[in-house]
Computed example of a mutant assay.
Amino acid sequence: MVRIAIANQKGGVGKTTTAINMATALAATGWKVLLIDLDPQGNASTGLGLNQNDRVNSSYDLLVSDISLEECVTPTRVPGLDVVPATVDLSGAEVELVEFEERTHRLKKALDGADIDQWDICLIDCPPSLGLLTLNAMVAVESLLVPLQCEFFALEGLSQLLQTVERIRARFNRGLSVMGVVLTMYDRRNKLTEQVSDDVRACLGNVVFDTVIPRNVRLSEAPSHGLPALIYDHKCMGSEAYINLARELISRLPERKVAA
Rank of each mutant, 00 (worst) to 15 (best):
K10Q: 11
K235H: 12
M138W: 00
A5W: 07
A229S: 12
H105L: 07
K109G: 12
H225K: 11
S159H: 08
D187Y: 01
L50H: 04
L97H: 08
D61F: 07
L227V: 05
R106F: 05
V98K: 12
E71G: 00
E96R: 13
L26C: 06
L145C: 08
Q160A: 10
V139D: 05
D37Q: 04
L133K: 13
G49Q: 03
L204K: 01
Q52T: 07
S91T: 14
L111P: 01
L123Y: 06
L230V: 11
I168K: 07
A140E: 04
K10R: 14
R167D: 00
I250R: 10
A137I: 01
L253N: 10
V78Y: 08
V258C: 09
A27N: 06
R174L: 09
D112E: 15
L35Y: 01
L26A: 06
L155M: 15
V182W: 13
V98Q: 14
L227Y: 04
G42D: 02
L245K: 10
I6V: 15
L148I: 05
D82M: 00
V181M: 11
C122W: 00
R218H: 08
D112A: 14
A5N: 05
P85V: 07
G175I: 04
A93W: 04
E151T: 07
S68Q: 12
D112C: 08
R106H: 12
V139A: 07
N190T: 11
L183K: 05
L148T: 10
D112Q: 13
K191Q: 09
F172M: 14
R215W: 12
A140H: 03
L34Y: 01
A25F: 05
L90G: 11
K108L: 07
T29D: 09
G92D: 10
A229Q: 04
L50E: 05
I121K: 00
I36Q: 08
A246C: 05
P40Q: 02
Q41K: 12
F152D: 11
R3T: 10
R215E: 04
S58M: 03
L48H: 04
T46W: 09
T104R: 15
S159Y: 09
R218V: 01
R256M: 03
M185T: 02
L133C: 08
L38R: 02
S251Y: 00
A7D: 07
P254K: 10
A246Q: 09
N21P: 07
V165S: 10
V2W: 10
F209H: 07
K257T: 09
I231S: 12
V196R: 06
A222K: 05
I124T: 02
L38N: 06
R171L: 15
A137S: 12
N53G: 14
I4H: 04
R218C: 09
R189M: 08
T104G: 01
S239T: 03
S220T: 15
R189W: 03
S239F: 01
G131Q: 13
I6R: 03
L111W: 07
S91E: 15
L227M: 14
N216Q: 06
E194S: 14
P147H: 14
T211G: 06
A19C: 13
L204V: 03
V56W: 02
I36Y: 01
E142L: 00
E156W: 13
P127G: 05
M138F: 08
L155D: 00
V165P: 15
V182P: 06
D61T: 03
G113D: 15
L62N: 10
N53E: 13
R171W: 06
T24S: 13
S129W: 02
F100S: 08
E99W: 10
R201M: 00
E255R: 01
F172Y: 13
L130V: 00
